[in-house]
Design a protein around this nucleic acid. Sequence first.
DNA 1: TGGTAATAGTTATCCATGGTAACTATTTAA
DNA 2: TTAAATAGTTACCATGGATAACTATTACCA
Lengths: 143, 143
Amino acid sequence: MEGFFQRYLSLYRPLITRMNELMSTYELSYSLWQVIFYIKNNGPSTLIDIANNYNVEKPTITRRVHRLEELQMVKQIPGMDRREKVIQLTEAGEGIYQACRKKITALENSVMAGIANDEQMITFQTLPKIQENIMRGGGSKSE
Amino acid sequence: MEGFFQRYLSLYRPLITRMNELMSTYELSYSLWQVIFYIKNNGPSTLIDIANNYNVEKPTITRRVHRLEELQMVKQIPGMDRREKVIQLTEAGEGIYQACRKKITALENSVMAGIANDEQMITFQTLPKIQENIMRGGGSKSE
DNA sequence: TGGTAATAGTTATCCATGGTAACTATTTAA
DNA sequence: TTAAATAGTTACCATGGATAACTATTACCA
């Protein structure tokens, strides 16, 4: 499958740029969206939960959450451990989640124009398999 | 196709990290590799050629080429216009291209483990269609 | 021919993201 | 009760890309 990475990677910038434009109305970027998305779909969460989910380091999530707090899309609620910072969506955050979800879904659809349904499905199912393979293949750390 | 972007994007970091590790032996990263790759496949080229091909701005390519010159993988040859800087691979650059090409192809293969051939092909063909749709969809600039 | 466009490239500066190392505060365990 | 583990933060650095303003050269054209 020579040339696959090139095809995969050359899609990245246009896509992420488009997403960021889409969300700029709400002062969000894709990286911030990820946090909102996670909390919405997994309930109030700790920074560690989020960091583990996205395979990024803690300070990265600390920063994202702080920005979201400034934007008042997210707030801290008491956990059962004074170390933990349990993060939840605010009302505003909920609203913005809905609005962005709609926009993103619309873009997801428009981007599939002219592509057969089964081709969409196969691509949809293949990407996570590739990710599995890469992550199993062992980064320089763990494994 | 809700959730498609998430699947696409969550593959990005592991992949690019893996690529960068792969090439770190030669002090290359994927962004530098792109330049080498382009020159190898299109012959001696100007910065403008390269920038246009990858849809990035000129200064971005200026920097990449300068790094490659430092690494002596690339050199300047006279063009037919004293404004132009025509860039070519050096012998060393050729060698490193070959070495990286092999490594990348091997990774491309290993990453497809357990994925049926036709699924690979469909994914391979679908990605550029999606890219087309995104780029046609008009960034905030042109169109 | 002389002067204005356009073109290729560079420099300086800024922004967005993410990583690492070293730290605090709290909790667990021995 | 002290040592280790855990959650989070802070400070700092690296990468990669964008913009704006600049130089040098070439094209155009009146």
